[in-house]
Design a protein around this nucleic acid. Structure first.
Lengths: 150, 150
DNA sequence: AGTAAGCTTGAAGTCAAGTCCAACCCGTGA
DNA sequence: TCACGGGTTGGACTTGACTTCAAGCTTACT
């Protein structure tokens, strides 16, 4: 019994839809071998990779960022715990930033809205960071995507 | 000088793009009067409404949810501070939930990933609440939805 | 042997939150 | 007079992260 699982098994074990798994594969986040029939066969360690992806998404990374992280894993050998934790080293700061923003917003709930002084200047003050790095078309991330000039 | 502002003025003062303001109006989140020319004219208090929208978005509400909140404002008179703060009463808990989740994720950074035991069961343990209320088509948010951005 | 469950592909659809565009109107200043 | 900076509209497009679909093949069970 070689340790190879079908996409359905992986889906059931990971809780991630089969269509999403195919999508991740297309995006290069995971890989599969193929049975003679053309059906995907996943080596068991892919489950850890998927767990990492899901975890990273919860932290707030995009699939593109996650892909970049995964690309830093050693290609020649199985990743160790150290390899995995190296990837997520920077996340702590990211999480802290978001928590800090949420704390500010919570304060604004009483200070800004509660006191009736709710204004964009004040709200803007409440989140000077987390600037979206996106330019061009597509959804902009209001409150921080453009300089304070407004 | 009647207290009516053009869309350009509102956009400049709020930092929200004119196209977004039209979009909010289409969605019923804000309203405008019209000049004889057909041009929008916004009464000044709309700025507070917009500030509320932007704030609520940062907290993690969708425009649909925000619209539902705004609909609870008294239609017959100008909203008081009390009216505004009543709307955001529930947000504190919501923010706390998200902060708690981020804390769990941060812990998982060392416990789950660091120790090498990273698994979906454990990660799932790390956020048993905030379960997605969505069914049907559209992106599913594995592992507890993603109620609050980033 | 037959059938149902499971897998394949590429293309198209979905959803939110907007943006972008073309074609047009309107008022002001040189 | 006429260019210019604003407005208007509807419809198409964008992005990210998927899902859904159709048509056809494979595997598992009875």
């Amino acid at each position: 019994m070689p340790d190879l699982l079908t996409i359905g098994e992986i889906s059931r074990r990971s809780g991630v839809a089969a269509s999403a798994l195919r999508f991740y594969e297309e995006r290069g986040l995971i890989a599969s071998e193929r049975a003679g029939s053309g059906h995907r066969r996943y080596p068991r360690p892919v489950l850890r990779r998927i767990a990492f992806i899901v975890f990273a998404q919860r932290v707030g990374l995009s699939l593109e960022e996650i892909g970049a992280e995964l690309a830093r894993l050693p290609p020649d050998r199985a990743p160790t715990r150290r390899d995995w934790s190296r990837l997520s080293r920077g996340w702590s700061g990211r999480i802290d930033h978001r928590i800090a923003e949420l704390e500010r917003l919570k304060a604004g709930l009483t200070e800004c809205i509660g006191c009736g002084c709710l204004s964009l200047d004040r709200c803007r003050l409440s989140n000077p960071d987390d600037r979206a790095a996106r330019i061009g078309p597509g959804p902009r991330y209001w409150m921080g995507d453009r300089p304070l000039a407004g």
